[in-house]
Simulated assay, not measured.
Amino acid sequence: MRTTVRVYWRLLRAGFQRQSAYRLAALGGLVANTTFGLLKVAVLFATVRAAGGSLAGYDVGRMGTYVWISQAMLGSVNLHGRTDIAERIKDGRVAVDFLRPLDVQAAEITTEVGRSLFALIPRGLPMIAIGAVVGMAAPESAAAYPLGVLSVLLGIVISSATAYLVGVAGFWLVETRGLQVCYMVVSGFLAGLFVPIQLFPRWLLLVAHASPFPSMMMYPIEILSGRVGLAGALALLGAQLAWLAGVGGLGQALTRAGRRHLEVQGG
């Protein structure tokens, strides 16, 4: 057990260190996040003011919190659907992964989470600092901070686990770039990247809640912004855990089915 934990810890560190090599890319991401964050502030603040100062429970302060936390999480939450497993399936290297004494899904997700955690340093924290200067509303309860951090971590893991599903579709599709594009469009919209999902029509809001995407970004924002109380925060955390279990179980099933398919095709 201790050896297994040590191995996954090293995979987490390897993912973190691998992403830290791309420092100029992180700087470029920070500039892009800041630019789009300021654009979103201008548009959404004007929308709130035009609605009389409150829109779906968002005033200017809470809308600012939404904007800057979503921008802070953008580099760490996998909403683009790209994963290493897709390439390894395409070129056949996944056969070597199956020979290793590690769970293929767990190893892939752990490495991806390590890369995502690094992005919080050069891109996430500066976004929060900029938001504090531009204008953000602080939560009324101090419990929102530890619960929010836990929710952010769960959101990162859920996004990695869901993107893994796109990658393992390569066992049947071989080329997954088209699926990745569809995933990127749908996930960003339903996760609340562009506007809070509370602004959606009711039918679309129900569609969003019936998917894992709000668990990646919108639920952590709701908790960190203090829009939900302690009971609401615990309910959102419970929903995240449920989605993680569901997506993780589906990933296990697809990995086993894909392995059988790969063996049949490979002879």
Rank of each mutant, 00 (worst) to 15 (best):
I121H: 01
I85S: 08
G114P: 03
I130E: 06
V134E: 12
I130W: 11
L117S: 07
A86Q: 07
S70T: 15
V67M: 02
P122V: 05
D59I: 06
Q105M: 13
E108T: 14
V149W: 14
G135I: 05
L125M: 08
D59N: 08
L79I: 07
L117Q: 01
S141C: 05
V152G: 10
S70W: 06
I89K: 01
E140I: 07
V94H: 06
A143D: 11
A138G: 11
T83V: 15
G61P: 00
V60D: 07
L117A: 05
V113L: 06
P146C: 11
P139G: 03
L147D: 10
A144Q: 00
G135P: 08
W68M: 07
R93E: 15
L153Q: 00
V60H: 01
S70Q: 11
D103V: 10
E87R: 10
G81S: 05
I130Y: 11
A142V: 12
L147W: 07
A142Y: 12
A95R: 12
M73T: 00
T83G: 08
Q71W: 06
V134A: 11
L150K: 01
A138K: 10
E112A: 14
R93H: 14
F118R: 02
R123Y: 02
Q105D: 11
V77W: 04
W68C: 07
S141K: 10
G61F: 03
R82W: 13
G131N: 09
D97Q: 02
I121A: 05
D97C: 12
Q71F: 08
H80D: 15
G114F: 05
R123S: 04
A95H: 12
A106Q: 04
G64W: 09
R88H: 12
S141R: 14
Y145V: 15
L74T: 01
